[in-house]
Amino acid sequence: MNKYLLYPGCSMDSSARAYLESLNTILEPLDLQLDEIEDWNCCGATEYLGINLIPAYSLIARNLALATKQMDSVNGTGGTRTVITPCSACYLNLAKADHYMQERPALGAKVNEALSAGGLEYKPGTLDVRHLLDILVYDIGLDAIKRKVTRPLNGLKVVPYMGCMLPRPDYKHRWSDHEHPTELDDLLRALGADVIDYPLTTECCGGHMTQIGPETAFELIRRLIAGAHERGAYLMAAVCPMCQLNIDAYQLETNRFFHTHYHMPILFFTQLMGLAFGREPAELGIGAELVSARNALAHIGVEVPVTQEPATPRKKDEGLPMPRRWTRHEEKEAVK
């Protein structure tokens, strides 16, 4: 039994539920046990780091400190000191905190000062922070994965999309290359898929630019979708909830913006693993994606049951009313 500590991150509960569901289906066949860090909190994504380093790192390091408390409770080989994250942003943040607390002792001291308020402490270097893909490829191994494949994805033309945050900056040299890592290619190939060389594999999906500069984000998304389309891919495989969300949820708007008609589904690599391990699409959250993968999977004879249409969409595309603004008097009253 391979045991690890799991830091799921916020998105696994919401937009990337399919990731979590599909991950859970591959644990047992791969003899993998993930113990969730108790009372974990948001890693702060990218926002805090831009404003003030100490609160940002403290927020992240709290999770690491909590994880060290659980190190002993996970008795097994290999994984007791290893925290794995399925999300690239979480992975980068956790790895970054561990790295900089060590490299800059003064920062480490400040962060620990903050943590001590909650009776916590984290000694940098105690834990190994690794991404799920890294564990699957290098600890579990491609051979072990290959042995579990009961429904090879032969003929499924897929582009591997690693995203930009996973391989860079690669503090601990975990990946084969910073710009053209091939771990995801190798994994998908092990599942039997027809993997297409995808030069855009580490290009940015736009991240949170969809919120603050949508036009920039749309262009980045367009390049990725167009690149996959031109190479004849049926679908894309993602390792990061953010990437998956951007390409899935913003594809329609991107098409609208550029007057294009791309239809490029994107699934989590764990969903494809689940399929290859013989699970049914519904168990893997397939069908929940906005750009449907039904036709793509039909190429290899996988039928995706029609999911229920979402509850009646709102008729008019207008915002909900905002709360009325406080008068100065009301505000004073409330503060009292």
Binding site: E179, P199, L200, R223, G227, E230
Partner: peptide
Amino acid sequence: AEVTDAAR
């Protein structure tokens, strides 16, 4: 930075 065949 890169040589690519991904045309924009």
